[in-house]
């Protein structure tokens, strides 16, 4: 699930698709129109799933794809090595996700986590409560 937006409407903290990867924007700066032509934005972004840093420069009027981010809550049913078995608290769907390095130790059996879904892939975002 994605949509198209104008580069000029993006800002830090929003999301963008670069190289087919959904990324979180961690830096956004614009240059005035000048020798290079129309106003440009430099976007620094980090892949949600691969943690790769990506930088692009686009005219602020350019169209780019933005992932639609869906969030859900899930309860941790069990921990199997670095993966968590989860149950969505709305749909009761069960699934397994890797535990991000920065959340290891915090994601424990019984706790509630927020996960996000982008372009059909899911990721544990934070521990709730």
């Amino acid at each position: 699930m994605k949509e198209v937006t104008e580069v000029g409407k993006l800002k830090e903290g929003r999301f963008i698709i670069i190289d087919d990867e959904p990324c979180r924007i961690v830096g956004f700066s614009t240059s005035a129109p000048g020798k290079h032509g129309h106003a440009k934005a430099k976007i620094d972004a980090v892949g949600l799933f691969d943690n790769q840093k990506r930088t692009i420069v686009k005219p602020t009027s350019a169209k780019v794809e933005v992932p639609i981010i869906e969030r859900g809550s899930a309860q941790v049913l069990a921990i199997v090595s670095n993966n968590a078995q989860l149950m969505d608290l709305n749909t009761y769907e069960t699934f397994e996700l890797p535990i991000p390095i920065n959340l290891r130790g915090d994601v424990k059996e019984g706790v509630e986590v927020e996960y996000l879904q982008a372009l059909g892939r899911r990721k544990i975002d934070r521990v709730k409560g």
Partner: peptide, 21 residues
Amino acid sequence: RRISRIYDVYVPQEAFEIFED
């Protein structure tokens, strides 16, 4: 005034926008 100068030649900034387009 959005003008770039090469000695006594003026290049209006629109020139570079036309170029990009």
